[in-house]
Structures are given as C-alpha cells and as structure tokens.
Nucleic acid binder design. Structure first.
Length: 517
RNA sequence: GGGCUCGUAGCUCAGCUAGGUAGAGCGACAGGCUCUUAACCUGUUGGCCGGGGGUUCGAAUCCCCCCGAGCCCGCCA
C-alpha cells in the first residue's frame, strides 16, 4: 500500500471499501428547505474525500447528490414571509421561489449551494428527488413498500417504538386539490389507492404508477434509495444514527423489504459556530456555504473538513479563528512543499493538503502572505493594486501568485466588512479626531513635522525618522507611535507606521499633525 | 430513560487502534531586526491530560463508575 499511507480517515474508509472490489456509489443528500449551511456541507465534503481516496486507489466510484426537493415544507421559517404559511406541507419543488428568480423554492437554496460545490471542486451527479419521483423511478419501490406495509409497520414499531396503527401505509399522497403531501391512504389495491387529505379533507383516488403522485416517508424513502441507486456508502449526521433512528430502521427495511444490502455508514458530527452552538438552519445559528466562501478561500474551507476526523465536532470561528485557520492551511502547504517539517501538531499534513485542493495541486509553492498581515495591508491600500504595491516592497509577487492573492484580498475585505472583530479594524480619521495628547506628545509631533517636511517620503525613512525624533525630544518610542496612531486612527495601536504613513501621503500627514500643534 | 460523540495548556487541537516520565499552532510575556506597530526572527511562560476506582513494573493512552458538554431518539427530513 506504499503510495497511500492508510492514516488519513478518508483513506481508512476507502481502503475498506476498496476491499469489496466492486463499483461504488457514494451518496449524499441534503434537504434544501433553507440556506444550506457549512454544517450540511460537511456531509458532501466528507463523502467526496472518500470518493477521491477511492479513485486514488484505482477503484471505480461515483459520487451522487440527491436534492430532497420533494420533501414538504415543514413550517414557516424565520426567514420566510408569513404568507408562506399556505405552502406548509407542499413539496419544496412546488412552492414559488422566495426571491422570484429561481425555478422554485428548492432551487432558490439549491442553486447557490451547487455553485459553492463547484468552487470547492466537488462535481457529483445531481439528482432532484421530485424529478426522480416524477419519472417513475421509485415506482417499483413504492409497490414493494405498499405490498409490505404490514412488515414495514412492524419494523418501525419494534425498532423505533412507534405506535403505528394498523391502517398506516408507507406512502403520503400529494393531494390533488391542495397540493400538500398529506393524503392518507384509506384503501389500496395496486396500482390504485384511495386517500383522504388530512389538510383539506379532499377524498380521491390516485394511480401510484403516476410519477409524483406522492412520496414514501423518509424512513422508507431512504432504504428505497439505496436500492434504486445502488448506494454502497453513505455518510450521515449523528441525528440519523441515534438508537431507533432512521438508520436503525433503514438498514433493516432495505434488507428485509427491498432485499438489498445497506451501504457502509459513516456518522459525522455537526459544526458549531464558535460560542453559539451547533449550526441549525432554523435557529439562525448558521452560515451558508456560499457566505463562507465569500470570506474564506475554497481550499481553506476544504481544509477545515479534511483536517478533522468526521466524528469530531468542528468549532467554526468567523472571528480571529478564521485568520488562524488560513495561516494553519499555509503551514500545511509549507510542509507539503518541504519548507517545514511535520511537527506534533500537524496531522497527516501532506494528505490533508492534497485533499484540500479543489482542483489540482499547485505545481510549486505559492506565495504565502500571513493572513493576519494581509488583513492589515488590505485596510491600508485603497484597492488591490495598492495592496500589491505595498506587498511588493517585501515580497516578490509573480504572475503565478497573482490570482490567489487577488482572491484572498477580496475575501479578506469581505471578512473585514462583515465579520472581523473591532480590534483588528482601523479606519483613517478623515476629520481631526477628538483625542487627548500630552505636552510631550505635542512637542514630539512638532519636531516630527519639521523633519518630515524635508524627508524623502519612503517607509523605512519615515520609520527611522520617528525613532530619531522621539530620541531627540526625549520621549519613548512607544509614546511616539501612540501619538501618531491617535491622531490618525483615534486609537493607540495601528499598522506598521512607516508603510502606513507613506501610503497616506506627506500632505495628509503634515496637515493632520498641524491640526494638533 | 436510551443512543452516539466529546471533555488534553487562556483559545483551537494533536497524541489515545501495538500503554513507558505531556505536544503543536495561536495568544500572552521578553528579546532581536543599527532605536518597542498588528510584519519577520528567537526565546520564555503556560496543563495534577474532567473526577474516582481498577489492570500493570509503568496509563492521557486499556477496563468500570461518576460528573460535564453537544446532538439525537416526532407517520420531519
């Protein structure tokens, strides 16, 4: 097994799957009932990593994503207008798009998510549940389920301790009158079923062969899917893994009803927003995948998932932790390119780095600017070109690096505007700020102004000039810098003074000092 | 009541699936860079490994109990 050391979790799972020596179908599914957040994303990323690891071993594998577009809307979520009350119970694909620009409600949330997947280099075969049903692909499974309703009921009652009544049937009809998935079957003889709608009271009869006539309940739908798509592996959140939960009933139903083996399972933990608990669409503790990609390079987001084993919960921090995460990624990159040794804190660094690449692995070590530093420079330069100019003083920026630098610049700008803690933000005071200065501060500034009038306006020179002047006036350098930051930013600390003042321009600096002496 | 997962330095986490006197990053602190920014470099600090038992010559690592945290156990997915 030399080429792929079996240490990374994705390789461990892939190794096991590969031993089965057959074609694999790895399934993922998410219900687009609201913004699809990074917590949900973990399911896809985890599965995709294993998919890649399988391919790396030469196994034949397919990655599929099933959008649960045929699920009913459960309630009016906080982000929805009240009028959506009338759609509760209807399939997501039948409900109008909240913004009016997508085909339907489901696509409103699904499309940006699928876009994110593209950025992340994930290209699954996408199926939409409402289409799968409509095309009649479920028909066989529906018949088997209906014909075995009694057995399914027993399984559910014994494993999940449900008190399902004798009359329970494993199918919810979509009411022809109100369009909700609340039609309860009262009589059945394949292929016809009579139902009564629990929502509007309508009574009717449907031909179950007509695609989209209704839907299998989740606990039956899931195992049916394993058979229909030949799923051999599926990762799911621990909510499905609790005792008596859908995995417990599903693995029995698929064997005994559909006569098909269950896939290999993998339970993954949830993602928490630092300090706010597990992400949950309905509680508002969530950041959508597309939103995260606005502030974090895609390879770093992948890195977040690859680094931790699936059974660890992840603390996602949109504050300073985000900077640390990027810097940590860069560290793994240096290790990958041999510029730094692997240490106790890094785990499977090379493999994690490989799996973090959305597309191909860079042919050589990319330029890496400490992200924290970039956060500062991005606030000094007024645009990307200026930022490049500032960075060029210390770093050699090649064309090769420009694209990544631009992406990082744009993302950190977004982060600064929307998520960054106040401590790292600074803003040039365009008007004279209201700050306290001491006698010696003023003495220092006066002397500084005089010297600066003659000074060559260059960062290093400015820096030295500040120190020289401080010494001459007999004020500590600390106080000197503080005075400068106070009159420029209205606070005690700031970015490297030399570069900072240089970028502000001599005129501005002299004028501002003049306002205080 | 039940299931799964987790509890290691201020923070985020390695180490625990072949038991052998605690690790990384960040932070903080100090120093360096021909003179103290939030760059960069170096160093220091910092943990009775949630608690208690047991197995062992020896346990963060194995077993048992307890405490704490998270999510779940709805004809919802």
């Amino acid at each position: 097994m030399g080429a792929f050391p079996v240490v990374h979790w994705a390789d461990v799972v892939a190794e096991k799957l590969a031993m089965e020596n057959r074609r694999h179908v790895l399934a993922t599914a998410i219900t687009p009932s609201g913004p699809i957040h990074v917590g949900n994303l973990r399911e896809v990323m985890t599965t995709e990593a294993i998919y890649r690891a399988l391919k790396d071993r030469g196994a034949e594998a397919e990655l599929i994503y099933i959008g649960d577009t045929f699920d009913p809307l459960r309630k009016v979520y906080p982000f929805l207008p009240e009028e959506y009350e009338k759609y509760v119970g209807m399939p997501l694909a039948d409900i109008p798009c909240p913004c009016g620009e997508h085909e339907n409600y489901a696509m409103h949330f699904l499309e940006p998510f699928l876009e994110s997947l593209k950025d992340l280099g994930v290209r699954p075969h996408v199926y939409l549940a409402h289409e799968v049903y409509r095309k009649g692909i479920y028909n066989e499974a529906i018949k088997v389920a209906m014909d075995n309703a009694g057995k399914i009921r027993e399984i559910m009652n014994s494993i999940a301790h449900r008190g399902l009544p004798e009359t329970w049937m494993p199918f919810n009809v979509k009411c022809e009158k109100c369009g909700k998935l609340n039609g309860e079957i009262v009589a059945y003889e394949w292929p016809l079923a009579s139902y009564k709608c629990k929502s509007c009271g309508f009574e009717g009869e449907v031909d179950l062969r007509k695609g989209g006539a209704g839907k299998l309940p989740w606990r039956v739908d899931w195992p049916a899917r394993w058979k229909i798509f030949g799923v051999t592996f599926e990762a799911f959140g621990k909510d499905h893994a609790a005792a008596g939960s859908s995995w417990d009933t599903g693995k029995v139903i698929v064997k005994e009803i559909f006569h098909h083996p269950p896939p290999m399972p993998l339970v993954y933990e949830f993602i928490h927003l630092k300090g706010r608990g597990a992400m949950h669409g309905s509680t508002g503790v969530a950041v959508s995948s597309e939103e995260v990609l606005r502030m974090l390079p895609s390879e770093v987001l992948r890195f977040l998932f690859m680094k931790y084993e699936p059974n660890r919960h992840i603390e996602f921090d949109t504050g300073f932790g985000l900077l640390d995460l990027v810097d940590e990624y860069d560290r793994y990159e240096r290790i990958y390119f041999g510029l730094e040794g692997e240490t106790a804190g890094t785990k499977d660094a090379r493999r994690v780095y490989e799996l973090s690449q959305p597309h191909s692995i860079p042919s050589r070590m990319p330029l890496s600017i400490p992200y924290r530093h970039l956060a500062v420079v991005a606030q000094i330069g007024r645009n990307f070109e200026e930022v490049v100019e500032i960075l060029s003083r210390k770093h050699e920026i090649k064309d090769f690096d420009m694209e990544r630098l631009r992406e990082r610049y744009e993302k950190i700008k977004y982060w600064l505007e929307n998520y960054a803690p106040e401590e790292i933000k600074f803003q040039l005071m365009h008007e004279k700020p209201d700050v306290e200065l001491s006698e010696e501060d003023i003495k220092f500034l006066s002397a500084l102004k005089k010297k600066m009038e003659e000074l060559e306006w260059e960062a290093e020179k400015i820096h030295t000039c500040i120190h020289d002047t401080a010494k001459e006036v007999g004020i500590s350098a600390g106080k000197a810098f503080r005075a400068i930051y106070r009159i420029m930013l209205g606070r005690d600390k700031g970015p490297r003074a030399g570069y900072f003042l240089q970028s502000l321009g001599r005129d501005f600096v002299l004028r501002r000092i003049g306002e205080f002496i």
